[in-house]
Amino acid sequence: MTGLAEHIADRDRWARGPRGPLALVNAQQVEVEQPVWPVPGRWAPAPGGLTVTAELGDGVVVDSVPVDGTVLVAGDHAVVPSVVSFSDGLAGTVTDRTLRVWDPSSEAIARFAGIARFDHDATWVTSGRYEPVRDGLEARGSVLDAAGVPLPVAGHVTTTVGDVAVRLVAVRSAAFRGSARLQLIVQDATSALPEDDPSSTYSMGRFLYLDDPGGPAEVVLDWNRAVLPPCAFSYLFACPVPPAENRIPAAIAAGERHPVDASGAVLH
């Protein structure tokens, strides 16, 4: 696990990066041939992604080849997803039938000053007991991702938050730097506070990632590393829904609070 200072720096870089949440300026589902703002070309659904039809002067480049006609833009689920770039510095990626347009010079990036966080507090480094789903079965349906797709439930973490005993649902997360991880999608009492309250956090909740021990084990819960979901940075992202078990009545005064501008105002 990285040190806290490195973790904080990584998060700020991610937020303002060319594929970070602040760079996303459009996410448009393409069901019929149509234009997509703010990029050139006409886009249409196709097996494996989208097609784009453009002239050479439009400046559309797919997989390093300028487009002059109609070409396939392979989606994120392809063995080799396509890379799309445009003459004005914008870029595109395809997920299912949605074209996402990224602007590394977006207004949101220009406004962003950092992620407001609670001060580090060692008392928020606690422990819990992780128990995988019995027999290795992956229960589905109780936790949904941002697209409404059921997530695989890995197990449960039993711990105490404040004075409240909880049994939190843990879902499987993508590997991070080669290590398997678990993810807790949580809301707590700070999520219900007004944004201008210095104890508030993003209303839809936060994430906490844990190293996956691979079996029943004691796990460290460092709530100073609770992070905001992408939807805290842009309305173009949907928020995953915390399961009922992960809606904690106690206040977790640790981790990230809100993305803010130079005045300290919440970005959105």
Rank of each mutant, 00 (worst) to 15 (best):
D12F: 06
Y130I: 07
A146G: 14
G3R: 14
P18S: 07
N246M: 06
T190M: 11
P38V: 03
G20L: 04
G20E: 01
V161R: 06
S85Q: 05
W14A: 03
V157S: 02
A5V: 14
S105C: 12
S82R: 01
E33G: 12
E6S: 14
D103G: 01
A238N: 15
R42L: 06
V143C: 01
D58P: 03
S127M: 15
P40F: 05
R129S: 15
V32C: 08
G75P: 06
D212F: 02
P249F: 10
P104K: 04
F112Y: 10
R172Y: 12
V60F: 04
D163C: 14
A122H: 11
S85C: 08
V133Q: 13
S263N: 15
R111P: 06
W43F: 11
R13K: 15
T190D: 08
A238E: 13
V71H: 00
I8S: 05
G3V: 13
Q28H: 14
E131T: 14
V79H: 07
D261P: 01
R177W: 06
G205F: 00
L184R: 01
A5C: 09
R11M: 14
Y235L: 15
R129P: 08
P242H: 11
S199Y: 13
P150K: 12
S105H: 08
N26W: 02
G215P: 11
L221G: 02
V62F: 04
V171N: 00
R225G: 09
F176G: 15
T158H: 15
G162R: 05
V169C: 07
L56C: 13
F237V: 04
G48F: 03
A254L: 08
S263C: 14
H258V: 11
A146K: 14
A180V: 12
W223E: 08
C239G: 10
V60Q: 02
M204E: 10
C231S: 13
N26R: 05
Y202T: 01
R167M: 13
T98H: 04
A44W: 06
A251F: 10
V52M: 05
P249S: 12
D211E: 15
S85H: 05
L236I: 03
A139C: 11
A192G: 09
S191G: 07
I252M: 07
M1L: 13
G148V: 14
G215C: 12
G20A: 08
G48D: 02
A116D: 11
D68G: 13
P40D: 08
V52L: 07
A251R: 09
V84E: 00
S191C: 09
G48A: 02
D10E: 10
T53W: 07
P81M: 08
E218I: 10
